[in-house]
Structures are given as C-alpha cells and as structure tokens.
Amino acid sequence: MAFISLVAAAQGIEPDRYRVWARSQINYMLGDGGRSYVIGFGHNPPTRPHHASSSCRPPPHSCTWSDYSKPGPNAHILYGALVGGPGEDDDYVDSRSDYIHNEVGCDYNGGFQSAVAALRYVELQMTL
C-alpha cells in the first residue's frame, strides 16, 4: 500500500498526504514501532525468518529439515528482506515456524523495495 500511495502521489492525488502516510509505513517497518521487521537492519531485527535455505548450515554440510527446526538464529542472514510482520495487536514473535509473521514473500518485499526506492526518488527531487 505504501508503494501504491506513492504512485498515486506521483500522479497528483493528494501528494503530501500520501507521501507522509507511505513514509510512516516504511519507517514503521524499519523500526519506528520499537523493532525492525527488516532482516539485518535496525533495532532488534528478525533473526529466524521462515526461509529454509537461510536456516541451513554452510557447506560442506547438507541442508536438512533438522537445520530448519533448530531454535537459534538462521545460519545465513537475508539482509534487507522484510518479514510478514506483527499481528493486528502489534504482537510479534521471531519464530521460524510462524510463517504468517516471518515469511519473506516476494510479493510484499517487491512492494517494500519499490516504496523505499520511490521515497528516495522523492527526496532526490526535492533537493534539486
């Protein structure tokens, strides 16, 4: 929604309001709510995303479901990936088995990265 708001703003639809709202959403994901939901970034980021290959031990070890089921942080850090995030009540547990809150889906990561790029573009345009 942040990206769609920025596209609407670029088309002249309530640009100030939509840019402010989009920025607040991105800032929340980056940590304004007390923790970051972006792996490897900010305060207390997720370390156990629901992502099988990042939970595997480095080679020469084979990747098995036992690696995925270990309680510690994933062996590989997916820098910049956004997890599903908190529930309606801002509740969040960094648990690999909770795919709803800890999945790193391409659909919302694409929107997240696009919104970050659009915000950067807006900042650059304002400095010219």
Rank of each mutant, 00 (worst) to 15 (best):
D16A: 12
N27A: 12
G87Q: 08
A10V: 07
A117E: 11
A22Y: 00
Y28I: 00
G40Q: 00
L82V: 03
I100A: 13
P49W: 06
Y99M: 08
L78P: 02
G80W: 14
S62A: 09
K70D: 10
H50A: 04
G33W: 02
D90S: 14
D94Q: 05
A75P: 05
T64Q: 05
I100E: 11
P60D: 07
H50W: 04
G110Y: 08
H50F: 02
Q113P: 06
S95A: 15
E103H: 13
W65G: 10
P59K: 11
S55V: 01
A81N: 12
P15T: 04
S54E: 03
G12P: 02
V20D: 09
G84L: 01
V93K: 10
G80N: 11
P71V: 15
A52V: 12
P86H: 13
Y92P: 01
D107S: 10
D89G: 09
G80A: 08
F112Q: 13
S69K: 11
E103W: 14
P45M: 00
A10S: 15
S62K: 12
Y18P: 07
N74P: 12
E88G: 11
P58D: 13
S36D: 06
A81F: 09
E103P: 01
R35C: 02
W21R: 12
F41R: 10
Y37G: 01
F41H: 13
N102G: 01
V93D: 04
R23G: 00
R57M: 07
D16M: 09
G33Q: 10
D90W: 15
G87K: 09
I39H: 00
G111S: 04
D16H: 09
D107K: 03
S97A: 14
S66V: 14
A81I: 05
F112V: 07
P73N: 09
E103F: 10
H51T: 03
A10F: 00
P15C: 06
T47L: 01
W65I: 07
P46G: 01
G80T: 09
S97L: 10
P71I: 06
I100N: 10
G34Q: 08
C56D: 02
G33L: 06
R35S: 05
D98V: 12
T64V: 12
S55G: 06
R57V: 07
D98T: 04
Y99T: 03
C63E: 06
P60F: 10
V116K: 11
R48Y: 00
